[in-house]
Design a protein around this nucleic acid. Sequence first.
DNA 1: ACCGCTGGTTCGGTGAATGAACCATGGAGG
DNA 2: CCTCCATGGTTCATTCACCGAACCAGCGGT
Lengths: 191, 191
Amino acid sequence: MALKKGYAAQHCSLARTLELVGERWTMLVVRDAFYGVRRFSDFQAHLDVPRAVLSARLGTLTEAGILEKRRYEQAPPRDEYVLTERGRQLWPALYALLAWGEAHASGSRPVRRYFLHQACGCRLDPAGGCPECGLGTVPPGDIEVHPGPGADHPDRQDPVSRAMLRPHRLLEPLDTVPTGSGAAEQQRNSR
Amino acid sequence: MALKKGYAAQHCSLARTLELVGERWTMLVVRDAFYGVRRFSDFQAHLDVPRAVLSARLGTLTEAGILEKRRYEQAPPRDEYVLTERGRQLWPALYALLAWGEAHASGSRPVRRYFLHQACGCRLDPAGGCPECGLGTVPPGDIEVHPGPGADHPDRQDPVSRAMLRPHRLLEPLDTVPTGSGAAEQQRNSR
DNA sequence: ACCGCTGGTTCGGTGAATGAACCATGGAGG
DNA sequence: CCTCCATGGTTCATTCACCGAACCAGCGGT
């Protein structure tokens, strides 16, 4: 958001937080990072955000220590952005916003995604805890995302959206190119 | 944020939430509402936000059912904005962002405010629960705000900031004009 | 030599945020 | 009656961030 003057004058933690993650698109980038999106083009395809803005947001988040830019391939230089520990600690805030939206801003639409505690398989409560295990906060690495009734939307047919239709663990890399059984590896190599 | 096109295309609860509360200044307005700020001029004095923007934000929040506009005085018509139940349910998200900022974006500054569970007097844990009572989430009405070491800042000497230096309960109206013991009522009448 | 993919940067146009000024209502004081 | 002040706004010119489209660079494949 870079509130040139307004926020800077505020000495509140919230204001400083919003200076980092309160800008347009930033939280959606972080959300996608939790869902396992890692590459520039995947963020771009899924969020449909102008590339310049995406570039700026990834830069800001990396500078703030929320994402880390890693070269995962040398031959053709390929980079990926992954959440740092600091970034992963944004999960409670992210989940709280998401849960509020589910309860108050969904307009009777069917639920799009379930969040399940991987250990016991039950749905997270609105506070992000596991009612079964008595955990107050389930860490994102122990959460599985499953598609709900409203998951498959006729718009959003890009590979990333389709990859998100399959159940997967938070933070684990999203497999963008899965055709049939076990074809992922072949595909990845053949590109 | 009114993401004209980008967010609208997203069918995610987070995107819809951010359309409401993700705009610049909006979360700070909500935070102040939790702290007990209710009047237009008090929001303006404390946040130092352009009046036009504040007007727009209060309008959006009222329309979204997060705040309610109430006439609290007829004679000279005076209005106040108070959180609705829907607005109060934003507390977990707000606290999570605040706690993250305290942990990761405070740059070794002394803590500005403590949040105490009113029933037992102990500080809230990072998840917004009470470690003593075993409560997963303490509702905002049961939370007391106390000034921390970094509370009194030489800037921000407006009446609202000074009022926030005194311990008070969340959601209860902030007493902006308290001079000495029990003088509040006299002051309010003499204006 | 040419094409395509990834990961960007650059650029002109548009819409939102900003700060300052102005306005309307309704006391209070003289 | 006239003026002053407080509250709660609105209007307006300027500035700034976002937008979409185009362009570019490194590398691989054919």
